[in-house]
Amino acid sequence: MGVTLGINDLKMVTAEMAEYPDMDYTGLSFSFLKRRLAYVFEKLKVRKLVAFSERLSDEDFREEVKYHMAVKVTEMFRDPGFWRSVRQNVFPVLGDHFTVWFPDTPSGEELFSFLVLLKESNLLESVDVVCQHPSEQLCNEISMGVFDTRNSELNHSNYKRLEESDRFEEYFTEESGDTIFNKALLKHCRFRTKAAGVAEEGEMFDFIVFRNSGINYSYSRHEELFKEIVDHIRPGGFLAIGVKETIPGNLKDYLTVVDDKESIFRKPGVKNE
């Protein structure tokens, strides 16, 4: 029998977690927190809330919590139409060199899809990519090309929906008996352990990919988070969100729609303005 968390439990435990670096989950919606913490408790075999609170003082335990709090993207090229739109509407106007930010990178699938797309558009040498997640272990795994090979067939079929050619196998290698993503494609990626959506002061990006993470936040935090993210889009730069997400509140006034169906937006202005 798992631990059942009420609203007061959630408030208490997230307040305790927020005292530690990169563990402020207070902005997540209650229903998401309830499910996610139940999942984390199950993974870490936590039977009582008080035991969870006590173990938070252990740095290794906190790392495990951050690792399991991540909702992994379970397939590469999720929404093939989105990736097609990126190639058609975003890549041609990004210029000779551009910077990309994944403000929440809970697994490799989204990043690897993006890198494959860059490679096939001959843009891999034009980019600097910043990826972040609060879990150091997760960042390490993704930087090593580790991904969930159980979904290889689905990944491949998504790719085939996107591509006319089929070079999918070229992007993977065998290492110690495991299939991993080709690390050569990761050479312009930088990983950092940081809470979702938190950039360095003054950092600006040409393209921000923040798909299906905002849906886990409460209404109020969702709006704050998007404001912070939009502030880091360079004039003329792009923002991609999940196909069933919306830009909150009056932030819509700061962005123009590039592809409504695939949820791609652009900040008005010109690069280097």
Partner: peptide, 9 residues
């Protein structure tokens, strides 16, 4: 409200 999620199948 409705909330959506991409959590595990």
């Amino acid at each position: 409200t409705i909330s959506l999620s991409t959590e595990e199948v």
